[in-house]
Amino acid sequence: MKAYLFPGQGSQFVGMGKDLYKNSHLAKKLFQLSDEILDFRITSVMFEGSMDILKNTKYTQLSIYIYSVIKAKISNNFEPDMVAGHSLGELSALAAIKVFSFEDGLRLVNQRATIMQKICESTYGGMAVIFGLEDSIIEEVCKKDHGIIVPSNYNSDEQLVISGEIQALRRVCFLLQKIGAKKIFFIPVQGAFHSPIMAPAQKEFKKIVNKIFFKNPKCPIYQNVTALPIIKSDDIKKNIVKQLTYPVKWKQSIKNMMNHRDISFTEIGPGNILQGLIKKISKNSV
């Protein structure tokens, strides 16, 4: 069984996609199409932009989507039995298995990124990775805080991301450190993704999603919201809207995929962040 995984924000790098553009006629065509659809040169941002520019949510999401989907499209052996994408990567996965077109997916990502960027600029939110504490402990500390702070990414048994108001984030991280967190890392992002703070973005994004034609996928997609294999386009639509305020159930998705015998995982996109998480999840699942 072949499972393909698509990364989200954090996997970008300077010069991403330049080699694909030079070495593949199809890739070049899709990069040029991206510039036309967006009405600005996203290729310049990807090929020549600095990391500071690439960290901007709008550019990050577009760049990772374009790179990941192009990589899938130029692959000679992309024949998945199942797919999954981490946060933004879910949209890349859906385009790769032709639930919607590359062009429609690009428009979706562009709108999603623009809406989320607005929320980031108008709120004081943040995210932090907590290492070495059980999920239930982190969940309980978040629940007891009087601010907006929630678990947002269940990445592995050793790593849980929390998101929320910056003051609540600092309070909770201080408490988690006191009760035994091995390490806490504040993620360099402007917003509190996958938290209630993103609710206004969710309402806007739903309107955009409903304008796009979705087909049933050619293979199951394990979506972040449920961690279960989804095969109906209507369910997929609902879940990608919910995803903005719901936690990413990544380790749960991978563990469910691992229930299939003789499964192999291939990461499609910039970097190999997800392969690192797979190793940690596999180790704790033996």
Rank of each mutant, 00 (worst) to 15 (best):
F265I: 08
L169P: 06
H260A: 15
E158Q: 11
R41L: 11
E121S: 14
K237I: 12
S136C: 06
I184F: 13
G89Y: 01
D104S: 12
D81T: 12
L33V: 05
L91S: 04
N256K: 14
R112H: 03
I236H: 03
D104Y: 13
S101L: 05
C219W: 01
D35S: 14
T43F: 11
S75Y: 04
Y65V: 08
Q61E: 07
P188N: 15
K218G: 03
L88N: 01
F102Q: 10
P151C: 12
Q117V: 01
K178C: 02
K144Y: 06
N272Q: 13
D52T: 11
A113P: 13
I70H: 01
N155W: 06
I166E: 13
D262G: 15
I162H: 04
N155C: 08
G125N: 04
P229L: 15
K18C: 08
I212K: 05
L94K: 02
H86T: 00
K183V: 08
I281D: 09
C173I: 04
K118W: 10
Q177K: 15
N77S: 15
T43V: 12
Y67N: 00
I230S: 08
S101D: 07
V241T: 05
D145E: 11
N284S: 12
I119K: 06
H194V: 05
V69Y: 00
H194D: 03
A199K: 11
E48F: 02
L108C: 04
Y59Q: 02
E48H: 04
H25D: 14
F186P: 07
A84E: 02
N110M: 08
M258N: 15
F185T: 11
I281S: 08
Y21E: 00
I148N: 09
L54S: 01
F186L: 13
H25N: 11
I281T: 07
F40N: 10
K183F: 09
S101H: 10
K55Y: 06
L94E: 01
K242G: 01
G89W: 01
K29Y: 09
A72K: 06
G17P: 00
A84R: 05
Q167I: 14
E79R: 12
L277P: 02
V83I: 14
S34W: 01
